[in-house]
Simulated scan of single mutants.
Amino acid sequence: MRILHTSDWHIGRSFHGNSTLDALEQVLDELVAQVREHSVDVVIVAGDVFDSSMPAADCYGVLTRALTGIRETSARVVVTSGNHDSAARLGFLAPLLEDGVHVLTDAAVVGTPITLSDEHGPVHFYGVPYLEPALVRRTWPEVTLRTQGQVVGHAMSLVNADRAERGGRSVAIAHCFAAGVEPTPQLEREVRQDLRQGSLDVVPLSDFKGPDYVALGHIHGRAELAPQIRYSGAPLHYSFGEAHKPRGSWLVDLDADGVSDIAWLDLPVPRRLTVLRGELEDLLENPALDAHIDDWICAVLTDRLPQREPMRRLRERFPYCATIDLQPERDGEAADTRTYRERVGRGVPDPQVIDDFLDHVRRGERASDDERQLLADVISEHRAQATA
């Protein structure tokens, strides 16, 4: 049996205010072509099909066309819900879907597989959708469930108990943050805000032992946590922090004894993501940057002082400039990384408060001698009026 492991489509997500629907549909068309070219039997979508619990109408069209294209190749589809999806909305039509499209969103049926067969016999697909601890306690009241780790651990115990009874080959599908992914600032933005980067909400890899293959979703970059436990990542780049990560899916072959081969299939990148760093005038005039005119651009401006209309001017040269990050470079002493509020505490003289404020808003440019004298005169006059 040949399986294509994908996840985190996030249909409907914007990219710095720009729609991604057309780009995603282009990529999903290529995914369908790969399903046909490689004679895939089963396509897995491991959660976060939509980016919102209430997707817009055109998002459903993108999903419908993708699923229809996959089914036209004769491949079957197994979908689970993620933290961005509404399990109820994604799953309410599941009983009415055509044979060959399976949507798994209900915690009550975790441990009950979708069983598909090939020439070697049955393969059991166990879906573990994203499960909120507060919502599944009523489903499993006999178990202490306060964290994602406890919830997924219990779900996998149900999966493994059923596996032991049924026998045969098996694939688990889960949407969670599993141990083994390096916690970086960008990764913290990829995971849901209520998934804290502490040990309480991390699922140990040991919980995923048992199935022949574990298809994970939730992390947007490709990751191999163990030979048979992997994240496929998202099919599009949804942030500049992901720009260096390839987009694609895992092609997994099962023979009579389990996994026989795993290969990576790249997906196209409709528009490259590029980070350009420098002073505004250099970014506007440097001819070497012509190669990036059609890229999505994050402009990191190092000017010491704020520049006039930087986004408008950048977009005149780079039409797809999506965001600006101000990182002024300072000469001499190291930059003070404290916030303005942290600098201004009780007992700080008024002239120092104002000087620190100017240093903060001017990105390292403090008051000049003339400005200090003017400020001293204004402060003195204000105090005189206050005490009169």
Results as ranks from 00 to 15, higher is better:
200 L>D: 14
177 F>K: 02
179 A>Q: 15
182 E>F: 00
209 K>R: 14
196 R>N: 09
196 R>F: 13
202 V>F: 12
189 R>K: 15
175 H>Y: 07
191 V>N: 05
193 Q>K: 05
183 P>A: 09
193 Q>D: 12
179 A>M: 12
176 C>P: 05
185 P>E: 04
187 L>R: 05
184 T>Y: 00
177 F>G: 02
189 R>D: 08
204 P>L: 10
182 E>A: 08
203 V>E: 02
180 G>N: 02
196 R>C: 08
200 L>A: 09
192 R>W: 11
209 K>V: 13
199 S>C: 04
185 P>I: 00
211 P>A: 06
191 V>W: 02
189 R>G: 07
182 E>T: 07
188 E>Q: 14
190 E>A: 04
185 P>M: 01
201 D>N: 13
202 V>A: 09
186 Q>F: 12
176 C>K: 00
204 P>Q: 10
211 P>Q: 06
194 D>W: 08
203 V>H: 01
193 Q>H: 14
198 G>R: 03
179 A>E: 15
203 V>T: 03
199 S>T: 15
199 S>Q: 12
196 R>Q: 12
180 G>Y: 04
182 E>H: 04
184 T>D: 03
204 P>H: 14
212 D>K: 00
185 P>W: 00
188 E>R: 12
179 A>N: 14
208 F>E: 02
205 L>C: 08
207 D>T: 14
191 V>I: 14
211 P>W: 11
